[in-house]
Design a protein around this nucleic acid. Structure first.
Lengths: 204, 204
DNA sequence: TGACTATATGGTCAAACAACCATATAATAT
DNA sequence: ATATTATATGGTTGTTTGACCATATAGTCA
């Protein structure tokens, strides 16, 4: 991405702040904040768009950060990821921070993403335990062997999903109970793949 | 808080969705979405304001969720948590949504919260596996037996932390390798408790 | 010298916008 | 019966807004 001038950075930072706090500012609001004419802002915003930092959604107050820029900086609400922690330094010193993580982007959040509480230990070998939460993204297709959520007899279950000889196979991962595989006919109305599991989290 | 009518709920949910996706909708956008006149929305929004769900920031596109409502539902960027999934209905139908989860609030995020990548299987029995990420909140104190991060010989380790007879004990949770407990003198300079682990997540 | 980038002002304009008015209907509560 | 609440339409108004035009200056690069 093309580098920004100091002025452009300032304006971008202002817009980011406002986006975090609710909604994007109008050009006139930006102008007022920096003591500029509305048009100066129009130009600056033009550069930010041209350089790929901002996206224009069209209408009034349509300023958004571009996906490129968001992924570059780890999203608007990124939490710092710490690599090696050196003894003397403060933990969040710049040297320790490897990057920023943003849950929304991490889990590939889209409008229809949802969270499901896991019941049972069928995926314990994958580190998904009873009481954990899985982040599910509804999809039409699923890759063979991916962990997904399937609706089986009206009950949502988290399973590894395989397509084997035209049949959908749901596989648990639990050594203790044995790796159970349940085959269900494709098109069978009692099974329906809902989506794939993007991630899992637990609260301690 | 005063309960909402069905219509009011629908409008509120629409506004919430838009707020999540960037910026609040205009009254006309809401009206168009529901096939109403702008004025009908003006009235509905008036009720939502009167009942304390929305706050009016003034100008154009000034709709915001009130603090009351936000704290009630768990934050602005909540992902819907789905309980039982009924067969026929769309997954995100109102009936299925039990609530909303917000990572930032879930993990008790503060300014100094950070993420640490877990190396090794020492906490595998707790469902924290190699490659997972833990969300760490720096704290001065830690409750006995809580999972925390300690700096041991300049290496950050995720362990259950016990205070036993004036000594800090770090305990792994891994049946296969046995539950190792390492005792370190309190005040020993080679150990330093950094904070407690608020949660753990993995990407699949 | 000339082209281009970046920053800046002042002015204009059409569209979008929230607010408000008058009016209507149906349900509920007093 | 009457008042209130909730929902709805159509129309008006004054403001906000993004876009655009003309113009200017200062710096960089060919």
């Amino acid at each position: 991405m093309e580098p920004l001038t100091e002025k452009q950075q300032k304006v971008l930072r202002f817009i980011e702040g406002r986006l975090r706090n609710g909604s994007p500012p109008s050009q006139r609001e930006i102008a007022k904040h920096f003591g500029l004419a509305q048009n100066a802002v129009y130009q600056l915003v033009g550069y930010l768009r041209k350089k790929g930092y901002l996206v224009d959604s069209g209408g009034h107050r349509g300023l958004r950060l571009s996906k490129e820029y968001l992924s570059k900086k780890g999203g608007p609400a990124g939490i710092p990821v710490v690599g090696r922690v050196a003894a003397g330094e403060p933990i969040l010193a710049e040297e320790n921070i490897e990057g920023y993580m943003n849950f929304e982007e991490l889990f590939g959040r889209s409008k229809d993403t949802f969270i499901l509480k896991v019941i049972g230990d069928s995926m314990v070998d994958e580190g998904i335990m009873d009481g954990d939460f899985v982040v599910v993204k509804p999809t039409a297709t699923i890759e063979n062997g991916q962990i997904g959520v399937a609706l089986l007899d009206d009950e949502a279950t988290v399973k590894r999903i395989y397509i084997h000889r035209g049949r959908i196979a749901l596989k648990s991962a639990n050594k203790a109970a044995g790796y159970k595989t349940r085959y269900v006919k494709r098109g069978d109305k009692t099974v329906r793949i809902i989506g794939k599991v993007m991630g899992c989290f637990k609260l301690l």
